[in-house]
Amino acid sequence: MADVIALTYEISPDDFTRAGEASSDVKSKLKQVGVSPAAIRKVAIAMYEGEINMVIHAEGGKITVEISPTEIKMILADKGPGIPDIEQAMQAGWSTAPDEVRSLGFGAGMGLPNMKKYTDEMNIETTLGVGTTITMVVKI
């Protein structure tokens, strides 16, 4: 059985300037283990969008990244408000982010669509008032 490398990150809420540090770290680790630049780019974009979402909408959370010889799996778990209507949230341009977030360059309603676009598999489990767990896989 081949080795799986697992990385875990606690995403702190209310610190927008640090959002993206975990994705940045994963990107450099994937480079170190020799994953192709194309796959790294997909993982980096999808995870970064997810990380930003956690800071904007869910008061932080936890991200686990599992790197195996065939795929990279990202599990983003938060205890935020949940997503009332996933289908609506997946539409490009649909956003519930406040203007304050938009002035920071996010909240264009492209986060979830981007995450889907750049990954081979994406699954959203969400319960209102309990939280959301998004699992994404990029094949390598």
Binding site: F16, G20, K27, R41, A44, L104, G105
Partner: peptide, 17 residues
């Protein structure tokens, strides 16, 4: 090209090479 001036501009650039 952007007129936005915050650290997330750099991170976005980083993710996209």
């Amino acid at each position: 090209l952007t007129g936005l001036c915050n650290p997330q501009v750099i991170r976005t650039a980083e993710m996209l090479d």
